[in-house]
Amino acid sequence: SKGEELFTGVVPILVELDGDVNGHKFSVSGEGEGDATYGKLTLKFICTTGKLPVPWPTLVTTLSYGVQCFSRYPDHMKQHDFFKSAMPEGYVQERTIFFKDDGNYKTRAEVKFEGDTLVNRIELKGIDFKEDGNILGHKLEYNYNSHNVYIMADKQKNGIKVNFKIRHNIEDGSVQLADHYQQNTPIGDGPVLLPDNHYLSTQSALSKDPNEKRDHMVLLEFVTAAGITHGMDELYK
C-alpha cells in the first residue's frame, strides 16, 4: 500500500491521552519512536497531572497497542496490513475493555500522521470500578505478559474488528483478565486493505527511568503479524 511507504525508516511517535476513571481525571503524554521494519516501539509516557489513578499496565493496550501500524508484517502478509494502508489520513480506533469482576474502559483514538510524526490521540472513560479493586486499589504488578491480538475484516465499515484477552499479573500471584473489543475505521476515503483473519504477536517490557521524578512508564515492545501461511505457489519458487 502507499501508506506502507511512510514506515520504511524510524518514525517519531506522539501520544496524548485524556482519561476519566470513576471521576478521577488524568492526562498522559508520551513520545518515542517506531520502526515497522522490526516491529519495534520505544516509548516513554508521563502522567502530566500528577499521580496516575490507575496502574500503568492497564493503559498499555490504549497507548502502544494503539499504534499497531508499527507491527512488522512479513512480505507474504503485507496485503493484510490494514493499519499502514489507512495512512497518512489514519484511522479511528474504538475499544471497550472489560476488566473481569470490575469496571470497564471505553476508548476512542485517532491515529494519524501530523507532518512526519505518527500521533495517537485518545479519550478514555472508565466506569463501575471498585475503589478497593485491583485497578483503583493499585494491586497489579508492574510488568506485562505476551499476547496474541486477533484481527478480522469488517467489510460493512471498511475497517477491521479486533479482539483479545489481556492477563494482568496481580501482586498476590493471581491474574486480572481484561477482555478487549476493538473496531478500526479509516478517516480518509481512499482504498484500504481488508485482511484475511490473522493475529499480531506482541511482547512488551515495562521499565522506569531512574532520572524521572514524575509518574511515568518506559515501554519497549515488539509486534509481529502472523497466522497466514505462504501460498503453495510461494513454496515452490
Rank of each mutant, 00 (worst) to 15 (best):
K2T: 07
G3A: 15
E4R: 14
E5G: 14
L6R: 14
F7L: 08
F7S: 03
T8S: 11
G9R: 10
V10A: 12
L14Q: 14
L14V: 14
V15F: 02
E16V: 12
L17Q: 00
D18G: 08
V21L: 04
N22I: 02
N22D: 05
G23S: 03
H24R: 12
H24Y: 03
F26L: 01
S27C: 12
E31G: 08
G32S: 00
E33A: 10
G34D: 00
D35K: 03
D35A: 03
A36G: 10
T37S: 15
T37I: 10
K40N: 08
K40T: 05
K40M: 11
T42A: 13
L43M: 15
L43R: 00
K44E: 01
K44R: 08
F45L: 10
K51M: 07
K51G: 03
K51T: 11
K51R: 09
L52R: 02
L52M: 05
P53T: 02
V60A: 03
T61P: 15
S64A: 02
Y65N: 00
G66S: 00
Q68R: 01
Q68L: 01
Q68H: 06
F70Y: 03
F70I: 06
F70L: 05
F70C: 06
R72S: 12
D75A: 08
K78N: 04
K78Q: 12
H80Y: 14
F82I: 03
F83L: 10
K84E: 01
A86G: 03
P88A: 03
E89V: 08
V92F: 15
E94K: 08
E94D: 07
F99C: 01
F99L: 02
K100Q: 14
K100N: 08
D101H: 04
N104I: 15
N104C: 15
Y105F: 15
Y105C: 02
T107S: 14
E110A: 07
E110K: 08
V111L: 11
K112Q: 07
K112G: 12
K112R: 11
F113Y: 09
G115C: 06
D116E: 11
R121H: 05
I122A: 02
E123V: 13
E123K: 13
L124R: 00
K125E: 08
G126D: 00
I127M: 14
D128G: 15
K130E: 06
E131G: 05
E131A: 11
D132H: 07
D132A: 04
D132Y: 05
G133D: 04
G133S: 10
G133R: 04
I135M: 03
L136Q: 04
H138L: 08
K139V: 04
E141A: 10
Y142H: 08
Y142F: 07
N143I: 13
N143D: 11
Y144H: 05
N145I: 10
N145K: 05
N145D: 11
H147Y: 06
Y150H: 08
M152V: 14
A153T: 13
K155I: 05
K155R: 13
K155M: 06
Q156L: 10
K157N: 13
N158H: 04
N158V: 03
N158D: 14
G159R: 10
G159S: 09
I160T: 07
F164Y: 08
K165T: 11
K165Q: 12
I166M: 06
I166S: 12
R167L: 08
R167C: 13
R167S: 05
N169K: 11
N169H: 09
N169S: 09
N169Y: 08
I170T: 14
D172G: 13
V175L: 09
Q176R: 02
D179N: 12
D179E: 13
Q183P: 00
N184T: 07
N184I: 08
T185S: 11
P186L: 05
I187T: 10
D189N: 06
D189A: 06
G190C: 12
P191L: 12
V192M: 13
V192G: 14
L193P: 07
L193Q: 11
L193R: 08
L194P: 05
L194Q: 08
P195A: 06
D196G: 10
N197I: 09
N197K: 08
N197T: 05
H198L: 02
L200Q: 04
S201N: 13
T202P: 02
T202A: 06
Q203L: 14
S204C: 07
A205V: 15
L206P: 03
S207N: 06
K208N: 06
K208R: 08
K208T: 12
D209N: 03
P210A: 09
E212G: 01
K213E: 14
R214L: 06
H216R: 00
M217T: 03
M217L: 08
F222L: 09
F222I: 06
T224P: 01
A225D: 02
A226S: 07
T229A: 10
T229I: 09
T229P: 12
H230Q: 13
G231C: 13
M232T: 13
D233H: 10
D233N: 05
L235P: 10
Y236N: 15
Y236D: 14
